[in-house]
């Protein structure tokens, strides 16, 4: 296996693992932020509603790379300034953390919109039935609204995930050694940039294809009752 791609295949696969790590951790962060934003926009007071709306609008209006640079370079200045004040030694902002925070932050806005739409699509009757049984607001959310919204949220969630995976390629621009970065290293060393970028493109297609299968499985799981009813 080591002979393929001039011995650089392990480096690329190592980068692929990092890409997947960044993608999954950002997804986790994005889902939490998305739930918070959706809840704030649907159930919050005027201030939290305003903040959540501002967040989703501004983030979706600015290119991801601009935000990533802002958080990566800006975060470094903030940390340096804080460090001077509190007398810490010099701290380098880790591109891994900066990447996850930025991507999570961006997709939190998209997830928020997806979840908001999904919650609004849950039929009123189900929620009223919950209240009629004497459930508290939280119980209704946990046992009725949440499970029912997952089904409505799945297609949008999956779409966001596919876009998120492709966005992780940008972390190579801030110096994180993901598979795009490693493809550049290998391609420049062997003078075969085409070979390695095409290889990485193919690996992205594999991630997409595997996600597709997972999505089909999830959809079958969460729409079972619809088939039983019809």
């Amino acid at each position: 296996m080591n002979d393929y791609f001039g011995g650089y295949l392990p480096l690329i696969l190592k980068g692929m693992i990092l890409t997947i790590e960044v993608a999954l951790l950002s997804l986790f962060f994005a889902v939490i932020l998305g739930m918070l934003t959706a809840s704030a926009r649907l159930y919050g007071g005027p201030i939290s509603k305003f903040i959540a709306t501002l967040y989703t609008t501004v983030i979706r209006g600015i290119p991801d790379l601009v935000l990533m640079m802002l958080i990566f370079f800006g975060g470094q200045i903030l940390v340096n300034n804080l460090g001077e004040k509190f007398g810490w030694s010099y701290i380098d902002i880790d591109p891994f953390i900066a990447g996850i925070i930025t991507i999570g932050f961006i997709f939190g806005a998209y997830m928020g919109e997806t979840f908001r739409g999904a919650i609004m699509a849950v039929s009123k009757g189900q929620i009223e039935a919950g209240h009629a049984y004497g459930m508290t607001g939280l119980q209704v959310f946990l046992h009725i609204t949440f499970p029912a919204m997952i089904r409505h949220a799945l297609p949008g969630f999956f779409n966001n995930w596919l876009v998120l995976v492709k966005t992780t390629a940008l972390v190579s621009v801030i110096g994180l050694e993901d598979m795009v970065f490693n493809a550049k290293v290998a391609g420049d060393t062997l003078r075969q940039p085409f070979t390695f970028y095409v290889l990485v493109g193919a690996l992205f297609l594999i991630i997409t294809a595997v996600s597709d299968l997972a999505m089909q499985w999830l959809e079958r799981r969460y729409t079972k009752h619809e088939k039983a009813l019809s």
Binding site: K166, T167, A169, L170, S172, V173, V180, K184, P193, Y197, V200, G201, F204, L205
Partner: peptide, 8 residues
Amino acid sequence: TPLLIQIF
């Protein structure tokens, strides 16, 4: 595939 890869 990411547009970044296509452009590269």
